[in-house]
Write a protein that binds this DNA or RNA. Structure first.
Lengths: 157, 157
DNA sequence: CTACTTGCAAATCATTTGCAGATGA
DNA sequence: TCATCTGCAAATGATTTGCAAGTAG
């Protein structure tokens, strides 16, 4: 365990694998090899991904029958439940993104090349909160997608 | 045709069924009874809806075999293509909302009762445009969902 | 031990497609 | 007339589930 995780009573950020282990234990669930490999694989990449992309990274284990599709889907659901992943829906398929040790953000989605560009705006959140207040709505989170063309694709046009 | 549609060369708003007919003609597609009933049914209601809800309203015709599921899906796709409906994805299933004669808006989505509350904010669009400009991104549209609890559900808590 | 997990195969479920007969322009 | 449409049945394709065998604690 790295020194930065033992500086005192301050609640410091745990590595994803450990945070997930704590979540599992708190639910009486087991820390299996499959769940560990999956978390590690997910957090060693920094992109958005869908179940298929994740499975590509885990192909070898799947071929060896050490891991299967259903288990990957089951574990993704647990990570969402643990609040460590966000699940979004882009054109019918589920897309996930890290929600642990990663600042909240929104997306510019290029409809030509399908690229996702992240951005964050405090002003946006202020407006969101003001609107919610007007409706006596309690905000838990939000998601915003701006659809259009990215700089590269505009150039190619 | 009502008088308000013949006031001169000004481009006035056509009733949805007519607007759709024009779209179909411009594509060499036919104005069939099925397509007409579907548009009329959709625009005689003012809610968000999914394919199943629409089919409930058209049950009778479906039972009489005057209309079928595939045709409904095909027509919904055409209405989206015509720019008269917006398609969104809420929890895996496709949800549609009117996008004709209806101002653009965003949503507060209550995760308890599943209600959708609409709102519009010019400031939000300004921020959206500013962010896009910074990324040389060309905006076509956007979609924002704020998730949380509506006033009613907060009261019941 | 033994309750939780997993891989497998099969089931779901909304949506889509191939095709032969029906129908609008 | 005849290209476009439609209903039907079957296909899709991502995700989920039942179940018997495997395994963490």
């Amino acid at each position: 365990m790295s020194e930065s995780y033992s500086l005192g009573p301050v609640r410091v950020k745990l590595p994803p694998a450990e945070r997930f282990s704590q979540f599992l234990q708190s639910r009486g669930k087991r820390i299996t090899q499959q769940r560990q490999v999956i978390v590690e694989t997910i957090y060693s990449h920094h992109d958005h991904f869908d179940a298929d992309e994740l499975m590509e990274h885990l192909q070898e284990l799947i071929a060896q029958r050490k891991l299967s599709r259903p288990t990957i889907y089951r574990t993704l659901a647990e990570l969402v439940e643990a609040g460590m992943l966000r699940k979004m829906n882009l054109g019918g398929r589920s897309v996930f993104e890290h929600d642990y040790g990663y600042p909240s953000h929104d997306h510019l989605h290029c409809q030509m090349c399908n690229k996702l560009i992240e951005f964050h705006s405090d002003e946006l959140e202020q407006i969101r909160n003001a609107v919610a207040r007007e409706h006596s709505f309690e905000v838990h989170s939000h998601r915003m997608f701006v659809t259009g063309l990215c700089a590269d694709c505009r150039a190619k046009q």
